[in-house]
Design a protein around this nucleic acid. Structure first.
Lengths: 236, 236
DNA sequence: TGTACATCAGTGAACGCGCGTTCACTGATGTAC
DNA sequence: TGTACATCAGTGAACGCGCGTTCACTGATGTAC
């Protein structure tokens, strides 16, 4: 990043943040597809063309919002991890933090985990921020595996068909772990379940059924910890 | 519904369908929030005000599309059920059909399972169509339970906390089954996993990881059948 | 420290476009007798 | 079967609005000497 030295640089950095903050605020009113540069500028007391000094196009503003959202979620997840805690407790803390962030920022959540914006192509620099939570969850499991505390699937577990085994092996290698492919697959299942559950909750699918979703969410993350092999605390 | 007797009635019914078909087609190009009555009318060679003879507003057209999408998915799921098959095979057939319908109609899927349209309030007559798949899945489990073939969770399963137990009991009663609340909860988990997985696949979250998702999807629906207690076929 | 010049933020008008919805109308289709 | 009237589909103009983006410009801030 550029060093901030002059008053001009400082003003520029501040206004860039203010533009993003106002855009974030307006996401909630009309959704990402309707995000309007003119409306953002008006709210900030500027003329719409002035925004082009900060973002070269509407899509680039969207990209900045997307990256910020992934990073805000990633930061919230990271912050929930107590390094002194057991892996299972950390797993649950991460799941809880992810859900809480999503509930506190539903429109930013929808921006990154909802329907893709038609005509918008996410640039490659969104990838890193996008996979932070998945990597964090996988890392907890990998660590438990490395220290020998991971409960591996028993012999009665459904074995992976060859195509999936190959994919899971490649994926494990890609994220730098030697966790067995069956466990890698289970982490993907758990990651999917976590976000599927949050999406269903925020998008209204549980209304009239599992609503409020708090007890359900707590139960599910618990089951998921078992499923990936993070040991239950010894019962009292 | 009104009986169709005159040429006028027939033309009206046909054009209503054509409007919805064209609107569905345009969903894919610009997304639901951007669905434009003027563009639909133009494509059909009509003037935009003519659409108001068929749908009193844009939102009512959207509602019709939403109900149609839920019903098309519900029909696809129903059609996948072979009444002669075992419950487990039917479960897998439904899961497969749901995923296939979603892949074949990604924009209609996004319309009903993606980000809610800002400012749009779904009217009550969307509820019935919306819960068809969940009811179908729950029905398969209920039937297996009624005939005694359901494998109930063992004593080592995580028991439900009281708040969730109450919700799951109420939900079971609501859908008219006496399946134990723990199993009701598992059906909700499985339903969530199925759609969470499809959303992740269609919305691009598996790209670079579990992509293509076909082997993963097949494996997951298999695991889900075990999880809700639908018996595995006897191994050869 | 002072001056000349370069850089940059923000303005305001304009381009060309699209939107949902209303309204008075024309002409075709259907109905009652 | 023929006629008078009612119903309805579709037209075209208009209302009032918002959009992203470009461009020549003014005036303030920063830099080099």
């Amino acid at each position: 990043m550029t060093a901030i030295r002059t008053a001009r640089d400082r003003a520029r950095a501040e206004l860039t943040q203010e533009i993003k903050a106002e855009a974030r605020r307006q996401l909630g009113e009309h959704g990402a597809t309707q995000l309007s540069l003119r409306a953002v500028a008006k709210e900030l007391g500027m003329v719409s063309s002035a925004l082009y000094r900060y973002f070269p196009s509407r899509d680039q503003l969207l990209t900045a919002l997307i990256i910020d959202a992934y990073n805000a979620l990633g930061d919230a997840a990271d912050a929930a991890v107590d390094p002194a805690a057991e892996p299972r407790a950390r797993w649950q803390a991460v799941c809880r933090a992810v859900r809480e962030w999503a509930r506190a920022h539903p429109h930013e959540y929808a921006l990154i985990y909802g329907t893709p914006i038609p005509g918008y192509q996410a640039p490659p620099d969104t990838i890193g921020p996008a996979i932070r939570v998945a990597l964090l969850l996988a890392g907890l499991v990998a660590e438990a595996f490395a220290t020998g505390s991971l409960v591996l699937p028993g012999p009665d577990a459904t074995p992976l068909p060859p195509a999936l085994e190959a994919q899971a092996t490649a994926l494990g290698r890609q994220i730098g772990t030697d966790v067995p492919p069956l466990v890698v697959t289970r982490v993907v299942v758990a990651w999917t379940q976590l976000f599927g559950m949050i999406s269903f909750e925020l998008f209204g699918q549980y209304v009239g059924g599992m609503d409020p979703a708090e007890p359900f969410a707590a139960y599910v993350t618990d089951e998921l910890a078992d499923y990936v092999g993070l040991r239950s605390p010894i019962p009292a």
